[in-house]
């Protein structure tokens, strides 16, 4: 019965006139401040979202590669990079000292300790990178990381930013 009610409610939802793509979830900054994911999007800039964790080796390699390149990419295309850590209460306090100790100065980091944002973006495993437009529309995504994957991302950013 409950499910029927839900389904009926869905008809109403799908026939109402709202339109917005931007995911609306609360994440935290490294200073523990609550940030709404809608605030990451400015309507114009391309956004890279990279989901990672301190315990994930390929994620660390990937962020090393992004950190080496992001200044150039941003200058050329205006793209912004946000790295979303899914470290839970076990290791989320470790994220800030870890990224500083790693020397990743050019990436903006956020925490998603109960994976709400990860679930909203339908990410299964980390590392997982998405490229979205300024309104939250997914243009491209990629799961896992191998050396050289960043070249593909760069190609896509160039292609999408020139449109």
């Amino acid at each position: 019965m409950k499910n029927l009610l839900l389904a009926i409610f869905l008809i109403l939802v799908s026939n109402s006139g709202f339109s917005q793509n931007i995911p609306n979830v609360q994440i935290k900054s490294l200073e523990n401040k609550i940030v709404n994911t809608q605030d990451l999007f400015d309507g114009e800039s391309l956004i890279i979202l990279s989901f990672w964790a301190t315990w994930c080796k390929p994620c660390i390699k990937e962020l090393d590669a992004y950190n080496e390149n992001i200044i150039d990419w941003a200058e050329e295309t205006g793209v912004k990079l946000y790295a979303i850590s899914i470290d839970n209460a076990r290791s989320m306090s470790r994220v800030a000292p870890f990224v500083n100790g790693r020397g990743w100065e050019d990436i903006e980091f956020y925490l998603d300790p109960n994976e709400d944002f990860k679930r909203t973006m339908n990410v299964i495993n980390v590392p997982h990178t998405l490229l979205l437009d300024g309104n939250g529309k997914i243009l491209w995504q990629h799961t896992s990381y191998a050396d050289g994957d960043e070249y593909e991302l760069y190609d896509v950013i160039k292609e999408k930013s020139s449109k």
Partner: peptide
């Protein structure tokens, strides 16, 4: 308790 600065992190 954590402390971090450019190039250094303590946890």
């Amino acid at each position: 308790a954590t402390y971090s600065q450019k190039g250094l992190g303590i946890y």
